[in-house]
Design a protein around this nucleic acid. Structure first.
Length: 716
RNA sequence: GGCGAGGUAGCUCAGUUGGUUAGAGCACAGGAUUCAUAACCCUGAGGUCCCGGGUUCAAAUCCCGGUCUCGCUACCA
């Protein structure tokens, strides 16, 4: 494998609309940081870029909701997120932001170039327009009833209740959030990126060239998209928050956020180059640059399909790998900031690192645990209990304990100095298959560990690489246990020569500690630094090429007193966190309820338009009884019901299969819209609609008369 | 339903192109030890490799069918 001339490493740009949780950290930023630290320890030329993604419709919407401006929101979260990363040791070379003029310039130029070369298409279509506000409405500015779950406040791009992806056309009774009026349809022209033109290239590049060196899930996901047929994708939107489309006659249009955000990697690189008096261009244009994107699996399509097409069209290099992680769950459930079921980086920092008994070490504790459960091949699960066990059982008991006992013994038996080592004893060592039996064996063990860790890091297998690190510390414990210098010390009275044995043992353990510091540095950088302090060496010792050497600490050198590298995690702390988690969920729930209760006006606003009695009179509501129910084949959510209306029995389809089993609803009385036009679904005709009520938790209830009455009874 | 990824010890995961008796860590049991943050070290027990077929001298591994989990997608009048 040829070593590239330089590396450009990116981590997904966090959306600057709120705090980021440890799932994000584990998914992209931590693995990227480990990889970068490793490369830098190798003295490679590497730039690590990231920054805030500050465009997109969600931000101005949130601003309106909170009675502030979009600018204020990003100005609030950008510095917090940046500082959070710093506190956790994520060492970006630059943390930029997409609201920066340099980025606007870069993205505009990018767009203009593609436009000029004819790589984009324009299409005119009808979109919702708010006459009162005199503006086209981006998806997020349209609210309406979700066709999927009936939620009344679904947005034009997604229903936040059921998570379904929507387009504005699908909303029932769409309303503009700006004026509260129903929007009209009006023609508008937009630019599209014709992905369909690049299908062959993507197929060749991903499915052939990278079939084996990319993670299976990444290739699989891409295959799924490509096989599904790629469509032209809109590059612009009617919105005023973002980067103006740099073409005449496109007032009121901005670049779609997914188009401008990844270009943020490029502008961040430019800014870094400006700050450091370097040239940015080779990092994006020279074939000798290795580009790697670290992301979570939700970002695969952007980084493997769309952005590469953009890069290729604009003459840039392509990513060499996109090691996307799966998701990290929390205590048995998906992480979700809005539900309160998550651990924000900010919370962890305040509660653990910034406390009196906290400190950098606890940043490393979290880094260590997250890496040990990194969702590299499948979703994984964060539990506080697991955090405690991992930290106490491995970091403290194996790694830190080895360093500590080495230091204590060195002070007790070797006057706090690096003891000399006596070659004649080493030459006389018995040959053994077990590395931990001898000094020579330990030297080999360190070299092998280094090789394995290097190899694993190159393959983005961080979890396994970190395991090798702990395993090496474990070998140190085994070696020391076999040598038992504390026992040998008791024989010094009769045999002063025994000091030589002790010297060699401690010399070996100390050199091993130095090696551990080097190999640990990418994973637990704060700890590596602390070890350097104890060893009284400069950070330069941590360079990767020094790993495997056994003369890192000079003989006769006085070392500092031992210092505990980590503290244990106590049961009470874990229990407190678990209780906090429950409290967060409860708090979020009441906030949500309160918000709905206190924002009466907006709620009124989102009521359907007023109707007159005659309108209501058009609806024929009847009481019916379910007499048969079965699942519709090839549909997850549909139940086929046979309903008795007294005068007739008819088939009605209802999307409730996720909530009820067919057998448990037979015999139930339900309310039917009896005169609704029939509609075919999955090949079966549905003649009517069942009314359902839904509570805040999304649970469904049948709307039925308080007592059983005759089927077919009218409702008015 | 379609597509993608996964299912290996109580838990978290390894298992390279098929090849002795399927591995590791944690947890558990027993032992040893005291330099060390009651830490370390040794030994042990623990598996129908999701199920069923097939190919092969040989299958955790390859093929077919089924099943469960996660993601994307379709279905929700």
């Amino acid at each position: 494998m040829n070593t590239p001339k330089r590396y450009l490493i990116t981590a997904a740009l966090p959306y600057a609309n709120g705090l980021k949780h440890i799932g994000h950290l584990a998914g992209a930023y931590l693995p990227a940081d480990i990889y970068v630290r490793y490369l830098k320890a190798q003295q490679r030329d590497v730039v690590f870029v990231c920054g805030s993604d500050e465009h997109g419709t969600a931000i101005p919407i949130q601003a309106t909701k909170e009675g502030t401006t979009a600018q204020a929101i990003i100005d609030k979260y950008h510095p917090i997120i940046e500082q959070n990363f710093k506190d956790l040791g994520i060492a970006f070379d630059i943390y930029h932001r997409t609201s920066d003029p340099l980025h606007h310039e870069t993205a505009s130029a990018f767009f203009k170039n593609l436009e000029a070369k004819g790589d984009l298409e324009t299409k005119t279509s009808e979109q919702y327009f708010d006459e009162a506000a005199n503006t086209f409405l981006a998806d997020r500015y349209i609210k309406g009833t979700c066709p999927s779950c009936g939620h009344k406040e679904a947005y034009g791009d997604q229903c936040e209740k059921c998570g379904k992806t929507l387009s504005p056309e699908e909303l029932i009774n769409p309303v503009s959030t700006l004026s509260g009026q129903a929007p009209i349809k009006k023609e508008t022209t937009h630019w599209y990126l014709p992905l369909n033109r690049h299908e062959d290239f993507l197929r060749e590049w991903i499915l052939k060239e990278h079939a084996n060196d990319w993670r299976p899930a990444v290739v699989g996901q891409c295959k799924s998209w490509i096989d599904g047929g790629l469509q032209p994708r809109a590059v612009t939107r009617d919105l005023d928050w973002g980067i103006k489309v740099p073409v005449k006659g496109s007032e009121g249009k901005v670049l779609y956020v997914w188009f401008d955000a990844p270009i943020g990697y490029i502008s961040a690189t430019k800014q870094w180059a400006l700050n450091n008096n370097k040239d940015w261009s080779p990092y994006w244009n020279d074939k000798d640059t290795k580009l790697v994107h670290f992301i979570g699996k939700d970002n695969i399509v952007f980084h493997c399909i769309i952005f590469p097409v953009m890069l290729k069209l604009n003459g840039h290099i392509l990513p060499e790998n996109v090691p996307a992680n799966e998701f990290m769950n929390l205590e048995g459930d998906k992480m979700s900031t809005s539900r309160g079921w998550s651990i924000e980086m900010d919370d962890y920092i305040n509660k653990w690192i910034k406390k009196e008994n906290g400190g950098d070490g606890l940043a490393d504790s979290l880094r260590f645990y997250l890496t040990s459960i990194a969702p590299e091949s499948k979703d994984s699960e964060f539990t506080w209990k697991g955090f405690q066990e991992s930290v106490n059982g491995e970091l403290v008991s194996i790694f830190a304990n080895f360093v500590n006992r080495t230091w204590v013994l060195m002070h007790k038996l070797c006057n706090g100095k690096v003891p000399p080592f006596h070659t004649e004893l080493i030459a006389a060592e018995a040959v053994s298959d077990n590395a931990t039996d001898s000094f020579k064996g330990m030297i080999d063990a360190v070299k092998e560990s280094k090789e394995r860790i290097t190899h694993l890091l190159e393959q983005y297998k961080f979890r396994e690489a970190q395991f090798e690190l702990i395993d090496l510390a474990r070998k140190g414990n085994q070696y020391m246990q076999k040598q038992e210098p504390w026992i040998v010390a008791k024989t010094l009275d009769q045999n002063p020569d025994a000091q030589k044995i002790i010297d060699n043992t401690m010399h070996c353990c100390l050199q091993l500690c130095a090696n551990l510091a080097i190999l640990a540095q990418p994973f637990i950088p704060f700890t590596a630094k602390k070890m350097c302090y104890m060893m009284k060496v400069v950070d330069k010792m941590l360079e990767w090429e020094n790993a495997g050497k056994f003369d890192l600490l000079k003989v006769g050198y006085t070392l500092r007193a031992p210092e505990l590298l980590f503290r244990k995690i106590e049961n009470e702390e874990i229990e407190a966190e678990l209780a906090q988690l429950q409290a967060n969920v409860a708090a979020k729930k009441t906030t949500m309820e309160n918000t709905t209760a206190t924002t009466e006006p907006t709620k009124d606003n989102s009521l359907k338009p007023e109707i007159v009695f005659d309108d209501f009179g058009k609806i024929d509501l009847r009481v019916g009884t379910i007499i048969e129910a079965k699942k519709v084949e090839k549909a997850d959510k549909l139940l086929e019901l046979l309903v008795d209306l007294g005068f007739e029995q008819r088939t009605i389809l209802s999307g409730i299969a996720m909530h009820f089993k067919p057998e448990e609803i037979v015999g139930k009385q339900v309310t039917i819209v009896a005169n609704l036009a029939p509609r075919k679904m999955r090949g079966i005709e549905s003649k009517g609609m069942i009314l359902m009520a839904e509570d805040a938790a999304g649970k469904l209830y049948f709307v039925q008369p308080s007592e059983a009455i005759a089927a077919g009874s009218t409702i008015a």
